[in-house]
Design a binder for these strands. Structure first.
Lengths: 130, 130
DNA sequence: ATGACTGCAAAGACTTTGCATCTTT
DNA sequence: AAAGATGCAAAGTCTTTGCAGTCAT
């Protein structure tokens, strides 16, 4: 194995994991997802690397769902749905955020707008049927 | 003092406090705001009553800012701006959420949409200048 | 008496951090 | 030798909860 690759093996595994899932996982969920392939990654390393990626803008945080921070490898602005029953987080790529909202927000607030989050809450299909 | 009033004096003070501020305070901020008028309210009571109001839909949570949950007495859907510098939360009443977004979200997801949060992030006026 | 609200302190949950170790340069 | 990544365990922060005391019905 190449040296540079080995050095960042765990870090890369964490980013790959986040990129390959659509679950918008928490640190603990990432840790669990990595368990089969990388059983020797500690939870502290997951937390540290998620913070590392986030500080570099490589991933983003959706904020906390049920008290737990959730992450997303997709840093483009897009819309989320959070199920209040099972706390699943879904992307809603079909819903578009009007660009006018951002500019109107900037004018209205006099603030420098950098980001935007549109989140719908409710019950997902399976939670609604139970 | 009337009996019924006395029984709910602290609970009412907490709701009044939330209604009278625009700061979208956390539990601790509510506690601090009440200090002058009600120095004998404990932080546990603030937490308990905020949860009580929230469970009855009398107030809403904006989610966590910098790891701390923030509350709002205005339960109508409206737009927020969160300053990433000082963690202030502002209302942006001038920005309207297109009603079409909600219906389009419901169609897109197949989920029962109950709520919606639109939050802009960035730097507020004073943080941008320092 | 019974039920409701509260303060206090303890417990709980999630996240961060200090330190020793190992690896790479 | 210096810098960086990691595991482990301890510490930290925010929030919830058990219990005893008080008040109203």
């Amino acid at each position: 194995m190449e040296a540079a690759e080995k050095q960042f093996r765990k870090r890369n595994a964490i980013l790959d994991c986040l990129r390959q899932t659509h679950a918008h996982p928490s640190a603990e969920m990432v840790h669990a997802l990595l368990q089969p392939s990388h059983p020797d990654i500690s939870l502290a390393t997951v937390y540290r690397n998620l913070a590392w990626f986030k500080s570099r803008g490589m991933i983003q945080s959706l904020g906390t769902v049920n008290g737990v921070e959730r992450f997303d490898a997709d840093t483009q602005p897009h819309v989320h749905f959070v199920c209040t029953g099972c706390h699943a987080v879904l992307d809603l790529p079909q819903v578009e955020i009007p660009a006018s909202l951002g500019t109107s927000a900037e004018e209205a607030s006099g603030c420098r707008v950098r980001g935007c989050q549109l989140t719908f809450t409710g019950l997902c299909g399976s939670c609604a049927n139970s």
